[in-house]
Amino acid sequence: MSEGLGASLPIDAPRAEDRVRSVVTEGRAVRWVLTSLAIVFLALFLVLPLFTVFAQALARGWGAYLAAFREPDALSAIRLTLTVAAIAVPFNLVFGVAAAWAIAKFEFAGKSLLITLIDLPFSVSPVVSGMIYVLIFGSQGLFGAFFIEHGIQIIFAVPGIVLATIFVTFPFVARELIPLMQEQGTTDEEAALTLGASGFHAFLTVTLPNIRWGLLYSVLLCNARAMGEFGAVSVVSGHIRGLTNTLPLHVEILYNEYNFVAAFAVASLLAGLALVTLLVKSILEWRYAGDLAAGARH
């Protein structure tokens, strides 16, 4: 018995349309149903709420919208939010770079434990994050008496808000930079050192350019969370209007007072910030995917 097998030639490289018949995908109908399902689900659950924010904010026209920002309490909330972010973000930036340098460029015992500990704030409920500072600095707290004696107010004041914000955003920069710098290794820095650069000079001229997009990416996300944090800040702030209200807390107060237009107007500011963050984040991911830590999405 003879079995012959032949293919008529010549053959060309497979063309794009052949992919449609690929054996490694589902039928057209299944693809269509799944895609529609995913899009409808995301539109209903994620996009519609975002749309609502702007729709409600403008429900009584631009006049009412803008009036929300003329209020002194709103302005002081904006000021406080910016102040808190201006302290918390640089703090975590410096911390993140230092931690990533120590962890990524050196081998030492207990490294993975250290990484786990740095990640800890991500797995703590925001409310608990605020609470731990109340337990320390509150009037009934561990060191509360000491601070009251010396006239230092931390809880229900700006320092408490800053501390709680630093806590919840603590891992952002470190967690992006550690894998990124681990991927990059130490050869670049070693090359710079053999060429006579000082350690700090090598950091500025070799390391920093290598991590700049990852740094920007993580600072962006850190900032979004710092300005938007609600639970932790709510616990330590005391909700004193004009003094310890950040933007998210101001939104809450306005909403609870049934001042919906003003609440959504202020919320739209934060939603705008979220949109800008998403946009820049996406651009960084499309353009500079190679310069970000693999799979480091938050």
């Binding site: 012959g4 032949g6 293919a7 008529s8 030639l9 053959i11 497979p14 063309r15 052949d18 018949r21």
Partner: peptide, 8 residues
């Protein structure tokens, strides 16, 4: 998939 020709 071939653009032309047959597989026997």
């Amino acid at each position: 998939f071939p653009d032309r020709g047959r597989i026997l």
